[in-house]
Structure formats: structure tokens, C-alpha cells
Amino acid sequence: MIPRSREEIRDIIFDALGAIAPEVDPAMIVPDRSLREQVDIDSFDFLNFIIRLHETLGIDIPEKDYAELFTLDSAIEYLVGRCATHL
């Protein structure tokens, strides 16, 4: 896959979140606090969030890695790494 910059990944995350919770202002998201808490998404929304990331980035996100997407910071870190290594 193509390596992606942190900024690109952040925008992709915001797009995916925006599709699920359009009322959320990305600027208000505290980067080191739980995303699910701030955006009020349930497991169904979260699965759709993962599916969108999977489709946009072309990477597989195994269920055991879901915890890596807990906060905005950790999600960016994880996805940047995943895109760099995923073949």
C-alpha cells in the first residue's frame, strides 16, 4: 500500500467519522481521549468506521487491533504504521 502521512490519515479518519456522526466538529475532538466517548458511536457505527478505513486505505484491520483505534492519536499512529508495512 501507499505510505500515508499523519495529516492524510487524520483527514481520512475525520471523513470516516463525519459519515457516521455528521454533527461532530473534528476540531473539537481531544486527540488523547476516547473517540467512542466523544463521538457517541455504538458498535455498529464503529464497525462501519472500520469498514470505511479499510475501504479508503486498502488495509485489513483485524478485530484484535480495534483497541489501537481508541483515541485519535493512537488511531493515527496505528494506521500510519499499518499503511507503511501492509503489502
Binding site: 458498535s43 455498529f44 464497525l47 472500520i50 469498514i51 479499510h54 485489513d60 484491520i61 483485524p62 478485530e63 484484535k64
Partner: peptide
């Protein structure tokens, strides 16, 4: 469920509910 979901692509995964 964990074992089952490991075998599945993200779009086919089952939610615990």
C-alpha cells in the same frame, strides 16, 4: 466469535449482539 471473526474480512464480521 473472536475465532470466527479472525477468518472473516471486516465487512463480514459479526457483532457480539
Amino acid at each position: 466469535l473472536e475465532t470466527e471473526n479472525l477468518k472473516r474480512s471486516v465487512t463480514e464480521r459479526l457483532l457480539p449482539v
